[in-house]
Simulated assay, not measured.
Amino acid sequence: MAYDLQITTTSSKQTKPDQTQLGFGKYYTDHMFIMDYETSQGWYNPRIVPFQNITLHPAAKVFHYGQTVFEGLKAYRTKDNRILLFRPEQNMKRLNHSNERLCIPAIPEEFMIHALKELVKLDQEWVPSEEGTSLYIRPYVISTEPSLGVSPSNHYQLLIIMSPVGAYYAEGIQPVKIFVEDHYVRAVQGGTGTAKTAGNYAAGLRAQGGANEKGYSQVLWLDGVDRKYIEEVGSMNVFFKINGEVVTPVLNGSILDGITRRSVIQLIKHLGYNVTERRISIEEIYEAHANGTLEEAFGTGTAVVISPISEFSWKDQQITINDGKIGELAGNLYYTLTGIQFGNIEDPFGWTVEVK
């Protein structure tokens, strides 16, 4: 099916914020994308419009039954003023994976990449140029049918909004301290852990708040059955370097298939390391620390790219990793991956897509 993308531009553009004070998700570009769905028509009326509030019926199903999914990716400005996206086709593919789990109709992936490029091109002045900054892009789907019946919606909206964001590490890449959560559960096999849906993140807020109160940046989630096997760090996938081998939790039905995770696995192999996807218990990590074979630990995700881990706290037992310093592998991965994303080094994988 062919789609006719309508573009309506605004005549009153906003003042751009100070690029050194962007933060995350505080400012939004001049335009947004919207597309509607109705069961008898499928997806229709794709349009780029001035950024605006949306109006929903109080009984819209998204409010009551949480039928919503989202994605996150970035646009980067290179030193020679080009604009690059990083693996956008993977985001659209994963959005459809989430859609399937939440009973939301599949989106037209190829058209959505076209629409995304048009939106970024229209608001390209919003792609910041300061070191480490980027334009964060949030596609999402909400169920809009005004009905309190517990069933999949017959109406949806697909939207894309964009926000210029600051460098995650304002003072350079820094290791973080992690609290191991063994009481609350984020997801279980057969649940929605593999989908990027709002409920997964709401389920983590209580534990995240408790970790912050104890002085820790993030939560390390354990599996929901045995409460011993490592799953994710906050909203990131997690990796460990043990005795020269890199290991990461295998995707098991409750772990998000991170696009940065996939990229890092490919990059680790490219750099000549062995990487294994398997079940990893928290006991194994503490034992590796005790016998001196735990060399590094780090998280991966769109916002942070690579987040080195300096400390774990589990059952009131703290362990320090690599003397609290950034590991050689984590540092190499960070500078290589961000170098590819910002066009500073060669992209041997064909991951970046230029917006023209």
Results as ranks from 00 to 15, higher is better:
2 A>H: 13
9 T>V: 15
9 T>N: 12
12 S>R: 14
13 K>S: 04
15 T>P: 01
31 H>R: 09
34 I>G: 03
36 D>I: 00
36 D>F: 13
37 Y>R: 00
38 E>Q: 15
39 T>S: 15
42 G>S: 10
45 N>C: 03
50 P>S: 02
52 Q>C: 11
52 Q>I: 04
57 H>Y: 09
57 H>L: 04
60 A>R: 04
61 K>T: 09
62 V>Y: 08
66 G>W: 11
69 V>Y: 01
70 F>E: 01
77 R>E: 04
79 K>I: 00
79 K>Y: 09
82 R>Q: 15
84 L>W: 04
87 R>L: 05
90 Q>W: 04
95 L>T: 14
100 E>W: 08
101 R>M: 12
103 C>M: 07
105 P>I: 00
106 A>F: 09
108 P>A: 03
110 E>T: 11
115 A>N: 07
117 K>R: 14
118 E>H: 09
120 V>C: 13
122 L>H: 10
140 Y>G: 01
140 Y>P: 02
140 Y>T: 02
141 V>W: 02
145 E>A: 01
146 P>M: 07
146 P>N: 11
146 P>T: 01
148 L>H: 07
159 L>N: 09
163 S>V: 00
163 S>R: 08
172 G>H: 01
179 F>V: 05
180 V>T: 12
182 D>V: 08
184 Y>S: 10
190 G>V: 04
195 A>D: 06
196 K>H: 03
200 N>D: 08
201 Y>F: 11
202 A>D: 03
203 A>K: 12
204 G>R: 07
205 L>Q: 15
205 L>D: 13
207 A>E: 08
207 A>Y: 10
207 A>K: 09
207 A>R: 06
209 G>M: 15
212 N>H: 14
215 G>A: 03
215 G>H: 02
217 S>Q: 13
221 W>D: 00
227 R>L: 12
229 Y>C: 02
239 F>T: 08
240 F>D: 04
240 F>Y: 11
241 K>E: 05
243 N>C: 09
246 V>F: 06
252 N>L: 06
262 R>H: 03
263 S>A: 15
266 Q>I: 10
268 I>F: 05
273 Y>N: 13
276 T>W: 00
279 R>P: 07
279 R>L: 12
281 S>D: 12
281 S>K: 03
283 E>K: 15
284 E>D: 09
286 Y>M: 01
287 E>V: 08
292 G>Q: 12
292 G>Y: 14
299 G>W: 02
301 G>F: 06
302 T>E: 03
305 V>D: 06
314 W>Q: 09
318 Q>F: 06
319 I>P: 03
320 T>W: 02
322 N>F: 09
323 D>P: 05
324 G>I: 14
327 G>D: 08
328 E>N: 11
329 L>R: 00
330 A>K: 08
340 I>P: 03
341 Q>S: 02
345 I>K: 11
346 E>N: 14
347 D>C: 02
350 G>W: 02
352 T>I: 12
353 V>A: 00
354 E>M: 10
